[in-house]
Design a binder for these strands. Structure first.
Lengths: 203, 203
DNA sequence: CGTTATGTACACCGCCCTGTGTGCTTACGG
DNA sequence: CCGTAAGCACACAGGGCGGTGTACATAACG
């Protein structure tokens, strides 16, 4: 018991209640929103007693923050670590979002919680900046003239597509990808990229 | 009393409680969010008894929808009706958002309510489509090759800037405006616009 | 075995929320 | 001046919320 504290993996000896709680929060917070999901409902879905939940998390706020932290790798790393794609393709792959995704949970959390000081809001900010940084890294790798600017621009497009998809109930990522392609081609000086194609300008 | 029902202007003979309610909702819903603003608090701010509020609006849902409808003219019309600007300048003026604005209330409502069937969510969708349409009209006026596409793209940029401003707590509209300028110049064929400048490409 | 951490079951608290019921006051208009 | 509609004050219902207290069960590990 000295080896594992209550670290990220959670379960020491029990039947992994912490994991079930986080798994249920992934589903319910995304499907119904944070504010509209009560702890009773969440515990029922996780098949965990409410008492246990409050022994793992000091409160709902902490659970929400942890829920955001857990969501990270499945999206961010999944795109940027694909070595089978060229840098330019990786930048565009960030716009290939499966239509099941309701809305970027970071935006949703920031709007729902409505408190910039909330730990989840702070993490959302950090995450968004990290994404922009990774986009900038990839942009640099692709030979962009101003990678930071391109990264920031692509991040803005992603967030715009996410927000617009939510409001309009229609997938806005293809349109964003078209803009992204144009920006990328504009930002990469000729004879710098690896697989640039001339014929696609704006889609 | 047969002339005025309880139409848009509200007050029949009384002291205009309806107007005060809507005015208070404009402030509180934007500052604190919809879910975090109770009817008690709202009525206190409007100096209106709760009973009166529920005689004007059948419920909070209807009040929220009306709050969104009331917000419309101050932004949308204010930009597109400026005849002192060229069409291209009008398109870019849509990105000149006073930093006081917390977040596009339509996005906030769609996220907070979390129900596409909610009347406010439906109105938010209609509004966003109307904005895109007006942007497309202006884009056509500016001589864009594909006005609908440009309008949709600019709308996406605006929403992205709004969402990103909220999450990062930093103004993202200048960056969006820079992208917009590039897209506009790309979309308008040479010798079509009225005030195009060559030297600004991406800012 | 027993200890200890873990999880369970269930009732319970106080708070705030939306929404009402009731009775009273004000002001406008004929 | 009087009727009526608009608005007010206040209390309360009903429910969901986050969060807790208590007593009990189980699994791991010595």
């Amino acid at each position: 018991m000295t080896e594992l504290e209550k670290g990220p993996t959670g379960r020491r000896r029990g039947r992994g209640a912490r994991e079930r709680i986080l798994s249920a929060s992934q589903q319910l917070f995304r499907e119904q929103g944070i504010n509209r999901t009560g702890m009773d409902e969440l515990c029922a879905a996780a098949q965990v007693s409410k008492r246990t939940a409050y022994q793992h998390f000091t409160g709902k706020d902490e659970l929400v923050a942890e829920y955001l932290r857990r969501f990270d790798p499945s999206v961010l790393s999944g795109v940027f670590d694909r070595t089978d794609l060229t840098p330019r393709e990786r930048l565009l792959a960030a716009f290939d979002i499966p239509p099941t995704t309701p809305l970027c949970p970071y935006i949703a959390a920031a709007v729902e919680l409505h408190d910039p000081q909330h730990p989840a809001s702070q993490y959302a900010r950090d995450y968004k900046e990290a994404v922009a940084a990774r986009l900038a890294d990839t942009a640099r790798e692709a030979g962009a003239a101003d990678p930071e600017q391109l990264g920031e621009q692509l991040a803005l497009l992603i967030d715009g597509a996410a927000a617009r998809t939510r409001v309009l109930n229609a997938d806005a990522f293809p349109a964003a990808a078209a803009i992204a392609a144009a920006l990328i081609d504009n930002a990469i000086p000729a004879t710098a990229g690896d697989d640039r194609r001339r014929e696609e300008s704006l889609g």
